[in-house]
Computed example of a mutant assay.
Amino acid sequence: MSTITVTTWSLEQTSPADLRPAAVPGDDIRIIRAEVPSPEFSRFLYTAVGGDIRWTDRLGMTYAEWQEWVDRPGVETWVAYEKGTPAGYVQLEAQDEGAVEIVYFGLIPAFRGRRIGGHLLSQGVARAWDLAERWPGLPQTKRVWLHTCSKDGPHAMDNYLRRGFRLFDTKVDQEPEVETPGPWPGAAI
C-alpha cells in the first residue's frame, strides 16, 4: 500500500479575547445548534463535509458508537444553513481542565469559497468559549484548540490564523493513501 506524507498542525486560543470574528457573509446564513442528539445527522455532516478530503476515521463506527458520541455531555454540533440547506458544521467536545476541542469543522463542497467558513468558525469558537453556560457541571473554558492537516482544504490554516488561533505543535507522519470516499461509496467528487 502506498503512503502519503501528512503534516498535522495543532492550534489554540487561550482567552476569549483571542477570537477575531469574521464578517457575516449575508442574510441567508443561519447557524443553529443541533440540540437533539442524532447519529444519522452527525454521520451525514461528517461524510458530506469530509468525503472529498479523506475523513475516514469515523466511517467504521456503528450506530451505537455514533449515539454514544453525540450523547456525551459537552459535545455540541453547530450547523450553518443557507436558505434551509445544511452548508457545514462545527463540532465541539468538552475535555479535561476546561479545554474545548473543535473536533470537526468544515463546509460541504458546494458551499466552500463563499465566505461562510470564517463566519461558521467564528460562531463555533464563541460557542466553545461559553460552552459551560449550557452544560452545568463543566468547568469554565480556559482553552479552545483544534488540529488541521495538509489533507484539509487550502484555506483552512489561513482561516484559523485569521480567527486568532496560534500554532503550538507540528507533526509529520506517513499515512496509508486511501481512496477519497465521497459522502457515500462511489460518490467521490
Rank of each mutant, 00 (worst) to 15 (best):
residue 21 P to S: 12
residue 71 D to A: 13
residue 126 A to K: 03
residue 188 A to T: 13
residue 84 G to H: 11
residue 137 G to P: 02
residue 58 R to D: 04
residue 149 C to G: 07
residue 175 E to R: 06
residue 34 A to Y: 10
residue 32 I to P: 05
residue 37 P to C: 07
residue 76 E to Y: 07
residue 47 T to M: 11
residue 113 G to V: 06
residue 189 I to Q: 15
residue 66 W to C: 15
residue 90 V to Y: 01
residue 26 G to Y: 11
residue 183 P to D: 11
residue 120 L to A: 02
residue 154 P to Q: 06
residue 113 G to D: 03
residue 48 A to Q: 14
residue 11 L to G: 01
residue 166 R to S: 05
residue 107 L to I: 02
residue 9 W to H: 13
residue 63 Y to E: 09
residue 9 W to V: 02
residue 70 V to W: 06
residue 13 Q to R: 01
residue 71 D to N: 15
residue 75 V to G: 06
residue 178 V to C: 06
residue 3 T to D: 10
residue 122 S to F: 02
residue 148 T to L: 10
residue 40 E to F: 09
residue 103 V to L: 10
residue 20 R to Y: 10
residue 81 Y to W: 10
residue 147 H to Q: 11
residue 129 W to Y: 04
residue 135 W to C: 04
residue 185 P to Y: 12
residue 43 R to A: 14
residue 28 D to T: 13
residue 126 A to V: 02
residue 102 I to R: 01
residue 121 L to V: 03
residue 93 E to H: 14
residue 131 L to C: 06
residue 52 D to K: 07
residue 116 I to S: 04
residue 127 R to I: 07
residue 64 A to T: 13
residue 8 T to V: 07
residue 43 R to L: 12
residue 112 R to C: 04
residue 97 E to Y: 13
residue 8 T to H: 03
residue 101 E to A: 15
residue 50 G to K: 01
residue 18 D to M: 01
residue 97 E to L: 15
residue 141 T to I: 03
residue 110 A to E: 10
residue 13 Q to S: 11
residue 41 F to P: 13
residue 55 W to M: 05
residue 89 Y to Q: 15
residue 85 T to P: 04
residue 98 G to Q: 14
residue 11 L to Y: 00
residue 178 V to I: 12
residue 90 V to H: 03
residue 158 D to T: 04
residue 8 T to E: 06
residue 171 K to C: 11
residue 162 R to Y: 06
residue 41 F to A: 09
residue 129 W to F: 12
residue 101 E to K: 07
residue 52 D to F: 10
residue 119 H to Y: 06
residue 7 T to R: 15
residue 30 R to V: 13
residue 102 I to P: 00
residue 167 L to F: 00
residue 157 M to C: 11
residue 39 P to L: 14
residue 28 D to H: 08
residue 152 D to W: 00
residue 29 I to K: 12
residue 139 P to G: 05
